[in-house]
Computed example of a mutant assay.
Amino acid sequence: MSAGARRRSTAAVKDALRELRNQLSLLNHQVSAQLALKDVDLDCLELIARHGPLSPSALARRAGLHPATMTGILDRLQKGGWIVRERDPEAADRRSVAVRAVRGRNAELFRLYAGMNTAMDELCAGYTEDELALIAGFLRRTTSAGHDATGALSGG
């Protein structure tokens, strides 16, 4: 592949990723609105569900948010019945709390994402296992690059 063709292909991948990010942002905005949550609340709920239970400070670091901002988000999520705050039995400080997602609420999220999940299943059915492994690897490395870039911007 020539250098020019390589640059064009790389630019096409970056452009497609930007379009994907925008579309997923729009989807998440619609899901947030259906659940009467802010977009950032949904983002934090996803982090808690995937990586929790987490301390509020660990969640703030993962989300790249100020701890005071995180307090408001957690208050809204707890009021909505999405999370619970529990004493962290493994913490040295007995006042420490851990935040975990309420499992019973998952059905609402699954219902709202069902159309996208079905579309992804159909899309993936058109690829071989090797192709899917390649795509998954690319997406993991892209996520890692995004994590690193976010950390560099937030000073962390």
Rank of each mutant, 00 (worst) to 15 (best):
S2P: 09
A5S: 15
R6G: 06
R7F: 11
R7A: 12
S9Q: 08
S9P: 01
A12K: 03
L17P: 04
L17I: 15
N22S: 13
N22H: 14
N22M: 13
N22W: 02
S25I: 13
L26Q: 05
A36R: 12
A36F: 06
L37C: 06
L37M: 03
V40Q: 00
D43V: 15
D43F: 05
D43C: 12
L45A: 14
I48V: 13
L54D: 11
L54R: 03
S55G: 06
S55E: 12
S57K: 14
A58E: 06
L59D: 13
L59W: 00
L59M: 01
A63R: 03
G64K: 07
H66N: 11
T71I: 07
G72N: 07
G72K: 05
D75L: 02
L77G: 04
Q78H: 06
I83S: 00
V84N: 09
D88R: 02
E90H: 06
E90Y: 05
A91W: 06
A91T: 14
A92K: 12
A92G: 12
R94Q: 09
R95K: 11
S96Q: 04
A98T: 15
V102M: 04
V102Q: 06
G104Q: 13
R105A: 04
R105V: 11
E108L: 04
L109N: 13
F110L: 15
L112P: 11
A114L: 06
G115H: 09
M116P: 05
T118L: 10
T118D: 03
M120Q: 15
L123A: 08
C124Y: 05
C124D: 13
G126M: 05
D130P: 02
D130C: 06
E131Y: 12
L132D: 09
A133Y: 03
A136S: 11
L139N: 14
R140N: 02
R141W: 12
R141V: 15
T142S: 06
S144L: 13
A145E: 10
A145I: 15
H147L: 02
D148N: 00
T150K: 12
T150V: 04
G151Q: 10
L153W: 09
